[in-house]
Design a protein around this nucleic acid. Structure first.
Lengths: 202, 202, 202, 202
DNA sequence: CATGAATGAGTCTTCATTCAT
DNA sequence: TATGAATGAAGACTCATTCAT
């Protein structure tokens, strides 16, 4: 759920029953950007979704880029948590990898594709931000790097290409996946890992 | 090279030294749109890249959408040709699939990701065009559908997920691929197909 | 004066010395459109006349069409009021018609022809609006239809042609009328109604 | 008919069976401008209608204004002829006036409203032209001035207002007239003159 | 915290016009 | 006579941003 993904991060304690506008803005911005891309989601759209005027957004965030940066950080953090939690339930390396893949793609597809933002394929992020964002992304990807390292594979197997292929399969899904269609998100992960398993350890 | 991709269509012979602005515009538009998305590439950008004023683009194309449509058509046609040629050299179904995958990803990476334009995930393409474009895309994808159908696979194998996973792996490459780096484009296709081969026919 | 025409609608009290930009924009837009037509009056013109940038107009009005719609509504409302007030002072059907005609042409000429905007002949008004606008116009014209119905005329007299002829005479006036010239606006109405009176009841 | 109105003016003799492009351009420009106004009819529209490219129009006319000027001149000439011919058939002053009014409105409505161009109400003609055009128009209106002078009217009757009212009634017709509807063009003239007749000579 | 009002640069597009060929 | 190709100015409109209140 969105709320879980983005909402847990209150940096400053909020008083009263009043909604936390910061969180609300991040939430709606996430949805809109996931749907229409960074540039496609205008500050007006975001403000409208929250029920304030565009200018008012600038009380909460210095700029659209700053808003995106925080959003990105939140999402990576939430995804990291999600994947780590999923992995923790297993001990077999292949099971752990599959759990991670499932967690990743479920995060991707169940949250209205919000996490697509995490991928560099996400339609044109602001230029200046790339470095910040890239590092966060790398940290997240390291989880998968480690999970692959833990596998017992035939000598000479290129784990980098394996990871890239896995991410490709998973991150490409938002492009064609239809919720309520033939497949569950986990099917995608399951099938890909299944192939790898059979190829390398069968 | 894009020139190869789009250049084969000259219906009327171009006069000597004079540039062919239509082709030039398609070329630059392709590069820019591949790089920045449909909306990210402005008519001004495109015109600048060719050295004319924005309004002058409209002498050659009715609208940005029309320009995109033609670009899309060209790319699909060129890719179709490329893949069909590559496939024709082989008879073994797995070899044929691998040849197709190689041709696809080489087209993708050699043209500066222009083929990404052809993918349904291509950032924010114009709404009105979807139907035209979707059909062209489907025709291209049918080639892969047929190649997969020709494989001798264990009963119950989901060829659709196989195809989607393959496209994911290949189409995701432009996101991380560095020309001149560790890998050749064909490595990506080779590895993915290799895994499939071992898993299903080994 | 246009101020009279559009100014009576202030829903919220305007703060002291600060100008009311909405009203000001409607005012200037009215003048410019009356003078140069809907298409002839550009948003730039209108913004310039008010002393803001073109883009800023969109803070007050959603679009040029929306601006026109409101302007149209205002003018029809003001004219309706003006004519009804004028008519109320008389009881004789001919006197009432003449009063209405005078009110109409005075409104037309005193506001710099702004009421021309209300006429179906108003140069190239936006296409999408026609229905809204047409209904308002019809409501206004109904006043004259009723006034003509109240006349005691020889059987077989075509009241429709009478009304059209009257509107023609009055609405054509802005084309040639010179303020401060030989005629007062009411002369035009007076003369035309006078002829009708003599022809039909004399 | 259009052809009669605009086509008789060949200034330079044309060779061959080839159409006279000048005349053709004037013809189509007339139709388009009558329909969409001076500014609404673009040079591209006009060129398209004739089957040449926009730039090619400039071989025949120095500018859009020049094209309009000639068009205007042609129309005034044709209308003058039409009215004079109609008038010549009668001797009674009232009959002559009615014939003129009929000819005027028939020219206005039967030729696809082309002659609406002749009126100053014609949507925003180019500014610089006004003087040329105004004089031609005045000459045409003089015909009606003379016809009114010839009437035997009660002393003190304002013939200027009479003329203006007549022109208003007639020139306003294109605004509401529906070809194939209840009325024939001549009905409008007939009714108005009828009223005048009854009022002044009855 | 938020609004009201604006800015300035940018979006796609249209138009009258020019001129070498 | 006409085309092919462009120009430059203007069209309506959007957007991120600012700032006094």
């Amino acid at each position: 759920m969105q709320t879980e993904l983005a909402g847990k991060k209150k940096t400053k304690p909020v008083k009263k029953g009043k909604v936390n506008r910061r969180a609300e803005l991040l939430q709606k911005a996430g949805e809109l950007m996931a749907d229409k891309g960074y540039e496609g989601a205008s500050m007006r759209n975001i403000a409208d979704a929250v029920g304030i005027l565009p200018g008012s957004v600038y009380y909460h965030f210095e700029s659209k880029e700053a808003l995106f940066e925080e959003l990105h950080r939140n999402i990576v953090a939430a995804m990291t948590q999600r994947v780590k939690d999923a992995v923790a339930e297993f001990t077999d390396p292949w099971d752990r990898l599959e759990a991670a893949a499932c967690a990743h793609i479920e995060g991707l597809l169940e949250t209205g594709n919000q996490v697509a933002i995490v991928s560099p394929g996400f339609a044109r992020q602001p230029e200046g931000i790339e470095s910040v964002v890239r590092e966060e992304r790398r940290t997240y990807e390291d989880i998968f790097r480690m999970l692959l390292d833990a596998l017992d594979l035939p000598e000479g197997t290129d784990r980098t290409l394996m990871r890239l292929s896995l991410f490709g399969t998973l991150n490409w899904a938002p492009v064609w996946f239809q919720p309520g269609g033939t497949y569950k998100p986990s099917d995608i992960a399951h099938q890909h890992i299944g192939v790898l398993r059979r190829a390398y350890s069968g």
